[in-house]
């Protein structure tokens, strides 16, 4: 069984730990933060009674969805350009996408402070050029959060679309043109549907990664930019409340699993479409 080692590895190192934590969501916690192995629904009741948690979950979904949308809109033309490039350039371009990953995530995220801050690159340039007098408030708001989020997730989107586009049979596109389809028409009717699986896979990945980020909003966000993963972190670490943290994490995993289920249905439709057109 080819999948067995992979499955074994994930079961031992991901599933079991997660189950161990999930169990904690039903356990009691004493005032010093020590977990007592005694069944209780305290944490679940707290989660359900306080609308705050669902509110933040909704906020996080919105953040992840908008990030995904931006990534798709920005990433598609880039991936398409990569396909059109000669092989030698393409290799370099793909390599460049990975370049920022060599800088540790926190330092990379903090480098935006030097770009967007009041004395940062953008404001410095605009002021030198005489466009503005007072520095623009580019930092510690939604704008800077999206700048950081999209920067982090874009590579995943571009490469997934790129791989998707590679699978498109170019003869098919040319055939469509021969049959009289105009440039955009051929793209919309043939290329786009055929590259849909790649776009979907990229979107799923970006959505999940964006929903799970807590460092980016922590560094680039302003006052009140609290997201769901921040709550999990706060419960587990500073509050030393493992039961609540476990409850929040279980909800998070269940919601994302539902998103994947939805994706599987949509992707299923995508595959069907491809079979028809092929």
């Amino acid at each position: 069984m080819l999948a067995a080692p992979a499955v074994g590895c994930v079961v031992a190192f991901i599933l079991l730990p997660v189950l161990a934590m999930a169990l904690h969501s039903f356990w009691l916690r004493d005032p010093n933060g020590i977990v007592i192995q005694q069944f209780t629904l305290t944490s679940w009741r707290e989660f359900l009674d306080d609308p705050f948690y669902l509110e933040v979950l909704g906020r996080t979904g919105r953040l992840a969805a908008i990030t995904t949308l931006i990534c798709a809109l920005v990433g598609y033309p880039v991936a398409y350009t990569l396909i059109l490039m000669p092989d030698r350039f393409r290799a370099l371009m793909i390599l460049l996408l990975f370049l920022p990953s060599w800088i540790s995530f926190v330092v990379r995220t903090m480098s935006w402070l030097h770009v967007l801050g009041p004395g940062g690159l953008v404001n410095l340039l605009l002021r030198r050029m005489g466009v503005i007098e007072e520095p623009l408030p580019l930092l510690y708001n939604d704008f800077s959060i999206y700048v950081g989020m999209v920067h982090y997730t874009l590579t995943y989107m571009v490469l997934n679309i790129y791989i998707g586009l590679q699978s498109v049979d170019r003869n098919l596109v040319d055939a469509a043109r021969t049959l009289g389809a105009k440039g955009w028409h051929a793209f919309l009717e043939v290329t786009l549907p055929l590259s849909l699986p790649g776009l979907m896979a990229g979107s799923l990945l970006v959505f999940i990664l964006a929903a799970g980020t807590y460092i980016t909003p922590l560094i680039l966000g302003g006052t009140g930019n609290v997201y769901y993963s921040n709550l999990i972190y706060e419960a587990v670490i500073p509050q030393l409340d493992w039961p609540l943290g476990a409850t929040l994490a279980v909800v998070f995993i269940v919601v994302l699993t539902a998103v994947i289920g939805l994706y599987a249905r949509l992707a299923g439709v995508g595959t069907l479409f491809r079979k028809v057109s092929a």
Partner: peptide, 22 residues
């Protein structure tokens, strides 16, 4: 909360906020 631009969480942030003019 209404007056503050940023609540920092690490020594690095604190130093950079005070030194870079934010």
């Amino acid at each position: 909360r209404r007056l503050v631009t940023k609540y920092w969480g690490s020594g690095a942030e604190q130093m950079s906020l005070l030194s870079n003019g934010t």
